[in-house]
Design a protein around this nucleic acid. Structure first.
Lengths: 227, 227, 227, 227
DNA sequence: AATGAATGAGGCTTCATTCAT
DNA sequence: GATGAATGAAGCCTCATTCAT
């Protein structure tokens, strides 16, 4: 990470022709958002200890000082990143209305969603990994965290109950265990793709394998749950 | 800072007449082994960037200088730790002679072994995780690494082939994919137990759940593989 | 950091019909007084360098910006504090009319007043101490300072002259020296009570010792002055 | 305090013709001593908060890094300074053998010693003052501190007891109180000389006044103690 | 083979202050 | 008159590493 290399933040995010007004100089929300975005990249690629506050500041529209102004400390910023990133996945999970589907279709959808999300949001996967190295010490500070997670479990419980009622699913499946199982399969292939790739000469996250793995995980899940 | 606190393992306590060899004051192999052991703890609990050379040295029988003497650098020491730790699991896998068992029993044994190993060797799990955060940059330096891994795949290929022949197993299963699946389930519950525990109020690695999860993973694997 | 904690004194609590004047939303004098009060605490407890502008602002009814608005700088605020605090003691000394008393009674009163004032106004004592650490650089800027102090000396000179005339006091006593002596005894026990307390296990400013020390200092002064 | 001004440490301290050996490059004790000396100046002139670690390092034979190597932190260094400086005065007090003198002569000697010491060691006076601003928080960490101080009190108790026995001294004098009184008079004229000088146009520590004040304080003490 | 002492470079954070409205 | 947002400069400290014996 050379000092002067300042990797450019992709400019295409700016919505070009929205208005012709000059960009306001003071825009706290925008500033915070910008910092958070850059920090997400840095923390997820370098880890909490490896991340450099200077490196984050350099790729930001503001100065290092503002990091502290808004987030108080490196750790405070890291927590904000965690909060945002965990919030994103849980918010999407809620949008995924599986209660309208048959148990089997609903479960398939949930697995596919989980697969796709991990496949696409590698930052998230890395951050979870990093947080676990730190014993989840920081996520515990994030107040919104625990409540949010309850939702997935409710969704799964609902699917299981309906599947049992319809005679499709086994009766002895615990929702949290099932969630763990699905997460495992979706998470591991992304999180540990590097050592896996080195060991077996095959990057498990490679796009060529994506469809096959997606089908495999759906299949494994359904076979596990079905009567 | 606690300068003088250096938790020393007592300086050798004079084992006088153990052997008739002149007691060597310095034992290079023992010193290296000692360093490696301490370093494994430090790296696995703190990560590569988070680990502190000073912290390692302090818990060692020798001084920081020796650490450089034998391993050249922090990264050199980290690589040595990786090599040792990866060597251990693969060595054990080879001992597990599944070729004498039926395909189903063999596969069950392999899964159980994998489960137990991850459950017991959390340092290993953490180090793999850490190495992935660094893009497997260091494991690539470890020469013996790739060869060792080929063995598991051979074992699985053999099991699958025999299972297909006996009509127990499906024909369309890829050995590496299956290995990935098994690893996922055994790895994730240990690696990410902290965030999982915080999120769902249930530590998935807790001993109370071990037997249930072990059975679950065996079950899921066999259901996936069976015809 | 505790961003949002700013211990606010409640915002004014709507004293509706107190007067018929249109209630002013902003009261510059009140604001200044409030700032000064908080600043006195902060400077006297933390020193000039140790005091934090942010800390002062937080405990104020206004914002940090106002502090600069009214006092220009941290040093300007410090000077304002000094001026206020020195003004208070000299004003009181003038009230103490010792010219009506006998030389001995008058001197006793002066000593007791000095003792009580230092005993009660520890902020003052600390600020004098602090100002001396900075070589009295700031008090020199306070214009009213020098004139005010002349008064005590006049009081003492008057007492001494009358005491000499009455045959009660020695002739060779210098008013400024005597003032220094009295100040020393009253000041030190407050200013250095912490190290003294730690050293000898006895806080010299403790209320249990107050009467004894007060009598002792009066006694020592009178014995020194008497023929 | 301009950055590049590096005030030279007086070189005359070096004992010139002691030996002709080249100065050893590694001399931990000398290095520590050197740091401590410079730090004493900086802390005593700037206060704990006002002192700059960089400023200390610059006037040292070593680098800033060594400050931390030997003293751990700015506060650790400050404590070491306190320890040294308090140790010095108490050590000298012990050398002053007043037990061979008459009670009056002994007490005079003690007062004169105390006077001279404060008059000469302004760094000490300033540091005590500074430490009191910090509530004696740091001196409390210094283990050797409390024991050392007991000695002065023993000396005074001995003098008082002998003076009472000989009929020279009053019976109702407490040793710690007397110590406080003497300290007050010797300390204040140095510690607060700046504000005093500004207030009364007379620096109480000026050499022209020294003899007079010395006599005055001896006189005041003896008059206080005598029957 | 072993080691106590030393260190340059860079890390995180905080300071008093000013900008732009 | 009043203010939320922003900041350059400097502060303390820690890192992995090497020097000299």
């Amino acid at each position: 990470m050379k000092k002067g290399s300042r990797a450019t933040v992709p400019e295409h995010i700016e919505t070009p022709n929205e208005t012709s007004e000059p960009r306001r100089k003071y825009d706290p929300e925008e500033t915070k958002r910008n910092i958070l975005e850059v920090a997400t990249q840095e923390f997820s690629s370098m880890g909490l200890t490896g991340a450099r506050v200077d490196a984050i500041a350099e790729r930001t529209n503001t100065t290092k000082r503002m990091l502290y102004y808004y987030f108080g400390s490196k750790e405070g910023l890291y927590e904000a990143v965690l909060e945002k990133v965990y919030g994103d996945i849980r918010a999407l999970e809620q949008d995924l209305k599986v209660s309208d589907m048959s148990p089997i279709d609903g479960l398939r959808s949930l697995v596919e969603f989980t697969f796709d999300y991990h496949d696409k949001h590698r930052d998230f996967v890395r951050l979870v990994t990093i947080e676990n190295i730190h014993g989840a010490r920081y996520i515990e500070q994030v107040k919104t965290f625990k409540n949010r997670n309850a939702t997935v479990i409710h969704t799964i419980e609902d699917l299981l109950a309906r599947g049992v009622a319809s005679g499709d699913f086994r009766e002895d499946i615990d929702a949290i265990d099932l969630h763990l199982l699905i997460s495992s399969m979706c998470f591991h292939r992304i999180a540990n793709r590097h050592t896996f790739g080195t060991a077996f000469g095959r990057d498990p996250s490679h796009s060529r394998l994506r469809a096959r793995h997606r089908a495999m995980i759906v299949d494994a899940t359904l076979r596990f749950v079905k009567k």
